[in-house]
Amino acid sequence: MVTDVDRAIERAGSLLGRLSPQAQRMAFRARQRRRAFFLQKLGRAALAAGAIIVGGGAFGLFIGPLGGTGVMLAGGALILATAGLLIWPHYPEANEETLVQTDLKLLPAQTEVWLAQQRRALPAPAANLLDGIGVRLETLSPQLQTLDPREPVAVEVRKILSEHLPELVNGYKRVPEPLRREVQSSGMTPDQQLVDGLKLIDEEIATMTRNIAAGDLDKLATQEKFLQLKYRDTDGVTG
């Protein structure tokens, strides 16, 4: 007998099968981040519960018995602390406001979450481009972990991810559905304008990734020359 749960699983599997490999990777990473976030909350709740239990035991051992009232208070504190830490904080949702406020190191991951939320509202060519941008963000993310947010390239990364990309997608979504495939005064349809804009953003992210990598390679080459000069000179003196 086929149940509603079986049908839901079948629909979910069918949908996943229709996603591009890039979209599947984005969905997988999103699930990983949510799982890690929950495990962090679970760990904090366990630590809080352990601290309350150990504190209650230490009080009873060194100061005096807790008594019925003390046990009730400790039990209540244990329940409240555990429940509170499991409920709060909520998993950070990605929207236009939160992207602007997100730390640069976390911005690519949050942008990926936001991109995944936009796929259904966009035509297939644009959705495929979003998937490709998500893959580029996967490469860009490690580069931003040590990048000074005040550097020009960091400022550009924040601007394109938290301003230009959302403005482009939201501008398209505001166009009424019947008009999205009609040629406008620009000689293009809104669908075409969206795709062209996403291509430009994709190329710009690729350029920024290369520029950051070039800067890292320059630093590595400089460090290598410094080490060569230092230790070769030292070897020469020692010899």
Rank of each mutant, 00 (worst) to 15 (best):
R119V: 08
G171F: 04
A94T: 02
A58F: 07
K159R: 12
F38A: 14
V169R: 05
I212E: 06
L144Q: 03
A109V: 05
L130N: 04
E151H: 09
P176I: 06
L227P: 03
S141G: 03
G215P: 11
V100C: 01
E203K: 09
R181H: 12
I201V: 08
L107M: 03
V135D: 12
E204H: 13
A8N: 01
P190V: 09
M26Y: 02
G50H: 03
Q192N: 02
K173P: 00
M188G: 00
Q110Y: 03
V54Q: 05
A214Y: 00
Y231I: 10
M188S: 10
A83C: 04
Y231M: 13
L217I: 12
G76L: 15
R158H: 10
A12V: 11
G84S: 14
D191W: 04
K41H: 08
K230L: 15
T139H: 07
V195K: 06
D6I: 03
G55V: 04
F28K: 06
P149K: 07
G67I: 07
I133M: 10
Q145W: 01
T98Q: 04
Y91H: 13
L73H: 06
A121G: 15
L140C: 04
V169L: 11
I52R: 07
G215I: 04
R18C: 00
T98S: 15
E182S: 06
Q40A: 08
R181Y: 02
E97L: 09
R35Y: 06
A51C: 11
R29Q: 13
E203G: 00
H164M: 08
S185C: 00
I52E: 06
L15W: 13
E96V: 13
G132W: 03
P149S: 05
G70R: 03
V5E: 13
N170S: 11
L19Y: 09
K105F: 01
R7K: 13
T209A: 15
M208A: 01
R119F: 06
I53M: 07
A58P: 00
L147F: 04
T82Q: 09
F37C: 04
A45M: 03
N211D: 13
I53L: 12
K230Q: 15
K173R: 14
K199T: 07
A58G: 02
V195W: 01
L85Q: 11
V155E: 09
I79H: 01
R31F: 08
T234Q: 15
P123G: 02
R31I: 08
G132M: 11
G50T: 12
T222P: 00
K225T: 11
Y91K: 10
Q143D: 02
F226R: 15
G67A: 04
V2H: 07
F226W: 09
L140E: 05
P89F: 01
G84F: 12
D4M: 09
A58T: 10
E93P: 05
L227T: 08
L129G: 02
R210A: 14
R31P: 00
E203S: 08
P92L: 08
S20A: 12
L122Q: 04
Y172G: 02
A30F: 09
L179D: 07
P21L: 03
R29Y: 09
K230R: 15
L217G: 01
G76I: 06
R180F: 00
R34Q: 09
G55Q: 07
I52H: 06
K219L: 14
R232K: 14
L137S: 04
F226V: 13
D218Q: 14
Q101W: 00
F28P: 01
T238F: 12
M208I: 15
L217T: 10
R174T: 08
R18T: 06
R232G: 07
M26G: 14
R181T: 11
